[in-house]
Simulated assay, not measured.
Amino acid sequence: MPTRVKRPSILVKLSITASLLAFQGYLGYHVVTGAFGIDSQREMLEQIRLLEARQAALEIEIDSYEHRIALFDPRRMDPDILTERARALLGLVHPDDIIIVPEAQDVN
């Protein structure tokens, strides 16, 4: 009894090849335009630069606040400066104080 070898159809080979090419096209499309693709990477890098600049500005502001808080340390506080600032903020003066008001400059 002779055996006959059945060869796969050419259509099966072509359909497998076409489906693999379509899958590669799908992956290639998402490499460029996907959430983590090339285009999104540019946007993320720009956002990183903006956030780093904002972080630097906030660090400067934090350092400023830390310096101002350090001035309230009772071991380092100058009572004359404290009373001067408090009186300036509250608008209070002693009767024996001399007040000098600078003249307004004309802007022409």
Score class of each variant (00 low, 15 high):
residue 55 Q to I: 07
residue 103 E to G: 03
residue 62 I to H: 08
residue 17 T to I: 09
residue 29 Y to Q: 01
residue 39 D to E: 14
residue 21 L to A: 12
residue 13 K to M: 06
residue 7 R to G: 06
residue 51 L to D: 08
residue 2 P to F: 07
residue 11 L to T: 05
residue 10 I to V: 12
residue 97 D to A: 02
residue 1 M to Q: 13
residue 30 H to L: 07
residue 37 G to V: 00
residue 28 G to R: 02
residue 36 F to Y: 12
residue 70 A to V: 02
residue 14 L to H: 11
residue 92 L to G: 14
residue 5 V to N: 13
residue 89 L to C: 10
residue 23 F to A: 15
residue 25 G to A: 03
residue 49 R to F: 03
residue 104 A to I: 09
residue 59 E to Y: 01
residue 98 I to H: 11
residue 76 R to S: 14
residue 30 H to A: 06
residue 79 P to R: 01
residue 32 V to K: 05
residue 47 Q to P: 00
residue 29 Y to L: 04
residue 80 D to G: 15
residue 59 E to G: 03
residue 64 S to N: 14
residue 38 I to D: 05
residue 43 E to R: 07
residue 85 R to W: 15
residue 90 L to R: 02
residue 40 S to C: 07
residue 3 T to G: 04
residue 26 Y to V: 05
residue 63 D to Q: 08
residue 52 E to Y: 09
residue 18 A to I: 07
residue 81 I to S: 06
residue 44 M to N: 09
residue 37 G to M: 00
residue 91 G to V: 00
residue 2 P to R: 04
residue 43 E to Y: 05
residue 68 R to T: 03
residue 87 R to T: 00
residue 37 G to K: 00
residue 46 E to I: 02
residue 46 E to Y: 01
residue 71 L to C: 10
residue 63 D to Y: 05
residue 81 I to C: 09
residue 58 L to C: 03
residue 89 L to A: 12
residue 60 I to N: 13
residue 101 V to C: 07
residue 43 E to Q: 13
residue 49 R to T: 08
residue 61 E to K: 11
residue 76 R to E: 12
residue 61 E to V: 03
residue 99 I to R: 03
residue 16 I to R: 09
residue 81 I to D: 02
residue 83 T to I: 10
residue 101 V to L: 10
residue 54 R to M: 07
residue 100 I to Q: 07
residue 95 P to D: 06
residue 82 L to D: 04
residue 32 V to N: 01
residue 59 E to F: 01
residue 89 L to I: 11
residue 33 T to I: 14
residue 73 D to N: 08
residue 47 Q to G: 05
residue 108 N to Q: 15
residue 51 L to K: 10
residue 80 D to I: 12
residue 37 G to C: 00
residue 53 A to M: 04
residue 15 S to Q: 11
residue 47 Q to A: 08
residue 51 L to H: 12
residue 1 M to W: 08
residue 98 I to R: 12
residue 49 R to E: 12
residue 92 L to R: 12
residue 60 I to C: 13
residue 62 I to G: 02
residue 26 Y to H: 04
